[in-house]
Every structure is written in C-alpha cells, then in structure tokens.
Design a protein around this nucleic acid. Structure first.
Lengths: 335, 335
DNA sequence: CTGAAAGCGCTTACAG
DNA sequence: CTGAAAGCGCTTACAG
C-alpha cells in the first residue's frame, strides 16, 4: 500500500541500491545529478523508508523501552520527559510501559520489548534490583540502565541520587530546629532508596545524640493515601513534633492526616518531604522537601543508554546525583 | 545473535512452517506430539519471535503512537495511563511522544511514527484540528483518533467532553452563589475546548440576565504561571468576586496570585477550575472544579482505535463524555 | 559511478 | 499431517 524503495527506484530509473545509498547518506560516489533527482522524487512522493525492514536488517530499531511503576506519579512523569528529550535528540523513540508495581507485569513487558527488538531499556524496577534479578536482566540480551534504583551489587550502569544524604539533610534540618521526637514514614517492600533515606535519618539522629526509636518509623504505600494512613497511625500512637516523609506524595498524605486530626502544620507538626515534585510548591503551607534533580535523572539515564549503545560497553559504575534541601514553610521549631 | 525460528525448527527437526504455525496457534492439523515437543523447545530456549520480521510481513506491528502536548501535565499523564491500559489489554504497545505544543514537532513525530509503521495514532493535537490539518492527517494513511480535540468539521473518530456544559456548570454555580462580576481565564491560541468552556460561561450569564463583559475575560497559558499572571492582571484591573479558570493548572495559578495580592479564597475571591486533576483535592482550600473523566477519556480513545483497526472503518462521530461539577471549598457567596 | 544478488526472520498460500 | 518456496522492504558486500 505504502510506497516503497522499489517504486522510487523505478520512477527515478535507478537501482534500489542507489536509492538506499542516498537515503542513508552513503552517496559519496553517486552523481550529483542522480542524487538531486532521487531526492526530489522521494520528497515529491513523501516516501519514508520502512523502519521494520531497516531494523530487521541492521538490528538498529532506534527504539528503546521505558519501564516505570506509574506514569501518574509526577515524579515519573517528569523523569519520562527527561528520558524522551534525551533520547529524541538522538533519533530514538520510546515505548512507554507502566508496571504498576507488579513484578510479573514488569517481566512481561521486558519480554514484549525484546520482541519489539528495542535496542535498550531504561528500567525503574518495582523492586530493589537483586543480584538474581540483575542476572536475569543481563540474560535478556538487551542493554539497560537502572533508573532511580540501586543494583544490590556490581553497581553499574545506573542513575541514582544520594538518598542517604537526603535523609540526613531532612532529619538534620528538623533537629536543628529543635525537634527530638521525629517520625519517619517509609515503605515496607524494602525499596533501597527508601532504606537509604531512613539510613540518613538515623545518621543525623546519631550525630545529634538523639536515640533512634523504632516506634517512630511507620510504613505505608508511597502514595497520598499511604502517607495519610501512616501519619494518622503515627500521630495517634506517638507524640511526635515532626515527620519526615520519604517521598512527597506521602508528605501530602501527612497534610491530609493533619486536617483530619485537627493539627496545624507547622505549628503542631513540622513536615519534610522528599522529591520536590512541582506541586510541593503549591501546597499550603509550601512543603519543605529534599529536591532530587528529577528531570536530570531522566536525561542522564538517556545519555547513559546512548553511551552504552554507541560504545557497546557498560558504564563502570552507578552515577550518583546530588540532592538539596529546599526549606519552605512546613517546618518550624516545636512549641 | 538471538535465537530464530530456524534454530527452533532445526532443533525440533521440523520445518519452520510447522514452528510458525504453532507459534500462531494455527496448528489445527499438527500432531499433538509435535506441538508439545516444539512448545517445550521454544520454552526451553526462551525463544521470542522477532516482531519486526513479523510486522514486515503481516503489517501488524501491534504498535500505536500516542502524541500529547506534555506528559508532565497531570491531565495528560492520567490520559496516558488510560490509553496504555486500554491498549495493552489488546496486546498493543505505545510509543509516547511529547509535542510540547509545537506543531512542527508534532508533524515530525507523526512522520517518525509512520516510519515505525504504527497501526494507528492517538492524537491530542497542539491546535484545534482544522479541516486542512484533518485532511493532512488522513493523507498520512494511518488510523488515528483525536483525543480531547474537536475536529472543526466531519466530527468523527474523536473523544471529547461536553466542554460547553462544563463552562455552564462552573458559571452557574458562581451565579447561584450570588456572584455577578465573574472573571474568566482562557487561552489565546484558540483551542476549541477552551472556546467551548467560555461559550458555556456566556450561556450561563445570559440565562441569569447578567451582561457579558469582555474585560472580565483574560487569556494566558494553560499553566500555573499562565494562570497566575492572568489572574493578577484581572484582579488588579477589575473588581471581580469570582474567577472561572478554564483548567485546573490555571486555577492553581489563581491561588498563587491570591497569595501575592493578599486576597483570601474564597472570602475575597471564589475560584472554579476545570479538569479535576488529582491535586485539586489537595489544595487549600480544596478546589471546586468541573470534573472530566480523564482516565476514561484515555481508555475510550484506546477502545475507539482498536475498533477502527479491527473493523477498518471509522466511528461515525465524535464521542462526547459527560462532565460534573465537584463543589469543594474554593467557592462561597460574595461578601 | 551504478546494479544484481543475497539475506535479515518471519508468514502464508500451495503442494503433497 | 508437514515442508519447500516466495516474498515483506530494506541494506550491504561485491562486481563491473
């Protein structure tokens, strides 16, 4: 149905080799006259080479897969944008896949992406990437970079941020304000990032000589609802004057919980989040949070993948981006 | 490198025809014994057919393109999710493309998607789809459905919501509360949706016998910043007691403007938005807004495209989904 | 400077 | 019940 290279060749009265060479700018030895003529015919007929046929023969599909837990989370939407920008500059297109935190769905998608012969996949896995899973990925025979995920060991070709420092910064800020009873909202499935943030929180407590109390750490889903439930549980059972939520969605949940329990932020409870999604700035009060360079994470992941594809070798190590504490209005000294 | 159908055939000691037939479940006439053996070999070697080769021959790539202005806008993130869910159920994968409201980028992407031989594209165009552009799309020879966009004429194969009713509902609510000086924040590039919402606003004014005043309508970008700037301009120049922002991001901008100008919502100014993105619920005060079934829009678009692909005919008309006014705390009677 | 031919990995009539 | 062969639309040595 669509016009093919054969048609163009016939119209131009040359061989398909010639057309192909021109198409791929390998036409050093072809007559200028011919080139011009063929080009104009291509133009005129709005001919576009079939990427499938091309991919079949070159194994270059100019296609990559991006696998995230949920595009609806602002954090991943922003990352996705970074990935797409970084990739499209190099002529790559992206298959978007949501795993919905379902590891089976994730594996299923990896299989489909392989079928589609993507050149690589950028993966923000549902789980922490264990050695086993890492091996599994390697076996798949596609290049990949881990996004916002630590691999448990041979920490390579990934992009992460300094989560531990972020957790430290958050807790330090609260400690400096004079808080001593600081709750922490985490997630239970053992995502490394969250563990690291909790680790940083503990580091800060230790540095300020405040004993770590397990009862101050409550887990829930990394969503608004999850944060709200966890915060209610924490506030009802313990006397905390501040809460460090290990992501911004949970922090929003704390705001909700505060409304329901009749507490004011920051007068009754100070709140610090993590991520700095764009809405953090539009909450009332504006959220104090640890900023990750979200868009940049996406771009770097794209850049790393391009590097791997072009050089056929993996990066030596995981790249660690810096974080920064953004102080706004959700924190103050305890009364 | 990857294992092929030929390898499987050789190992199983059958022809590649047989393997292919089994792969495609067209094996009515093949011995059970053979089927089992081949299946287990496929399993064992983790063989997956090359989608490129398959697509080349069948022209079924099981692939579609989704083109949105900006995935970072919650509205489109939610739609994207709906599209992906609706499509993946039918075994389709989606290429995600952000046009960033750049019509050239949009056309560029359509070309690339064509090259990739997507079976169809779901398009939320930057512009209102004019007759000319509609023809252009048709010429591309890919099936497409228009998402959240009216085609100016032969209104077909699209999904939209009842924007005019939505605008009416928003204004009616404010009028019922007793407001008579109601500002309206719109967008200037002439996006149909916004025009329709403005239309509904005028309808309501007319019905309540309130004269329409052009000076109450200010335009800006459909973003938080755009809404903020437009609101500041409106509030400084006119005495309005309420503002209808034609999307939620602009409404958030009004909140910002209110802070900057020392106005309280809803005491000094009532605000109504449009979309009901999830954050509308977490603003302070919670935003009164016109809810669109965002996720559903995405799913329907996917369903429509599947329908078109399976039946090789376009839907007779644009599907119009209903909207609903969600009254929360950003509106009250004027003082 | 240009073309004929092989081949990428599949599917699908067709033949037996 | 199974296989040989043509062909999808390209690219790329190789030959001239």
């Amino acid at each position: 149905m669509s016009i093919t290279i054969k048609d163009i060749a016939k119209i131009a009265n040359v061989s398909i080799t010639t057309v192909s060479l021109i198409l791929n700018n390998k036409c050093h030895n072809i007559g200028e006259e011919t080139i011009k003529r063929v080009r104009s015919i291509i133009e005129e007929h709005n001919y576009r080479p079939n990427a499938l046929a091309r991919g079949l023969i070159t194994s270059k599909t100019r296609t990559i897969g991006l696998l995230v837990p949920n595009i609806t989370n602002q954090f991943f939407a922003e990352i996705t944008k970074g990935v797409e920008d970084g990739l499209s500059e190099h002529g790559y297109n992206v298959f978007l896949c949501n795993s919905y935190n379902d590891i089976d769905k994730e594996k299923q998608y990896i299989r489909v992406l392989k079928e589609q012969r993507v050149e690589g996949v950028i993966l923000s896995s549902t789980n922490t990437v264990t050695q086993d899973y890492y091996s599994y990925l390697k076996e798949q025979g596609v290049a990949f970079v881990l996004l916002d995920r630590h691999a448990s060991e041979p920490l390579n070709n990934g992009i992460i941020v300094d989560d531990r420092k972020g957790g430290f910064l958050a807790a330090q800020h609260l400690l400096e304000l004079g808080h001593r009873k600081i709750g922490c909202l985490v997630e239970s499935t053992g995502l490394c990032n969250i563990d690291e943030r909790l680790h940083g929180y503990k580091d800060a407590l230790a540095q300020y000589g405040v004993p770590y109390e397990e009862k101050f750490v409550v887990s829930g889903e990394l969503t608004i609802e999850g944060g709200c439930q966890a915060a209610i549980k924490l506030i009802e059972e313990q006397i905390v004057t501040a809460i460090f939520a290990t992501n911004d969605l949970m922090a929003i949940g704390v705001y909700e919980a505060a409304i329901q329990l009749g507490k004011r932020i920051p007068e009754d409870i100070s709140v610090v989040g993590f991520d700095d999604i764009s809405f953090a700035h539009y909450l009332t009060p504006k959220l104090t949070t640890v900023r990750q360079p979200i868009y940049e994470i996406g771009r770097r992941a794209a850049a790393n993948l391009i590097y791997i594809l072009q050089n056929k070798l993996y990066m030596p190590s995981t790249e660690v981006l810096d974080v920064e504490l953004i102080i706004r209005n959700s924190t103050s000294s305890p009364r």
